[in-house]
Design a protein around this nucleic acid. Sequence first.
DNA 1: AACAGTCTCAACCGCCTCGAG
DNA 2: TCTCGAGGCGGTTGAGACTGT
Length: 357
Amino acid sequence: MSRKPCCVGEGLKKGAWTMEEDKKLISYIYENGEGGWRDIPQKAGLKRCGKSCRLRWTNYLKPDIKRGEFSYEEEQIIIMLHASRGNKWSVMARHLPKRTDNEIKNYWNTHLKKRLIDQGLDPVTHKPVSSNPKQGMPKSSDVEDDSNPSNPDEHSQSRSMSPKSLPPSSSHNLPEIISSDGTPKNEGSLSSKKHCFKRTSSTSKLLNKVATRASSIANILSASMEGTLMSSTTLSPSLNEFSENSPFQMDEFDLFPHSSEHIVDHMKEDIGMLDIDLNNPEYDFSNFLEQFSHIEGEEAENSGGYNQDPIPSDVSSTSVDEDNMMPDITGWSNYLLDHSDFTSDTTQDYDAKDFFI
DNA sequence: AACAGTCTCAACCGCCTCGAG
DNA sequence: TCTCGAGGCGGTTGAGACTGT
């Protein structure tokens, strides 16, 4: 039995929405609220199907949607969540305040996915691609270019080259936050196409770096939650530089003022169940993620659904549940913070250029 | 200036889930 | 328990913008 498409109808308009249509939809929803999407087109005087109205509202018109460039932290959250959960865009959207699943999906497909591929990583498994020995193996010239320790700042603009000479994904390497001249590179900076970095051949190395940065994020979050976020808040060197030199606002991270401790404790319990040694700098973080995902999966099954997100199901894909936000990254980060040997060791040596080797 | 290739992302498509009756 | 429909979700498309030649 095939279902009749919901958007079959005479005279229904498709394609880009006009400003007039947007105004009609917005004014109708402001007066009558969301829901009953099938009836909205007729009541609002729109020649669109209800589904199209709902998507236009949830993905574009909704007032609390954050648009524009993804922040460095948002990128890392996406990468971490994708590594553990796969293409669960709606789940990611619940962890990223004011971002829609569609936007995250687009950003993954156009930027992050290509970046992983370019680094020789399978964007599905986040592991090195072994079938093609060329992938993940940087050209010797690339290594030479990027391994010059004498001037790490050159990792920004000095790597400028014509976009055509670069693989597409190289345009969004995570470390591209501060230009070599110190210019903040927030708006549009991360999509700059004029940079190139060494490629990693190890997922674990990548994830260890992500974990390191996650601990920095946790610092911000913790300080934000405690209302003590100040310039003195302990950050990794690169993140300090980032915050000082970019228009990035720390209060953006005051989005989690009520992070519930029990979630963090719960995550710590989960992590405690794992046989891991994060004090070991050589620890393969991908194992950690795999084990952690396994536990999550088991819990989801026990709670009645496979691969359920711990966040209540009544949370829409675009809404923000502050109490339950980011339990994963908070848990990981708090755990890593408790293992100062590991985090300090990696943060001290950290430089943006090393993030994606 | 014109053209071609590439990139971005809003929008669409179709299947899935879940709740109401 | 079954059916139906609304809404959710992930994959895909294509128009427009951008960039290089």
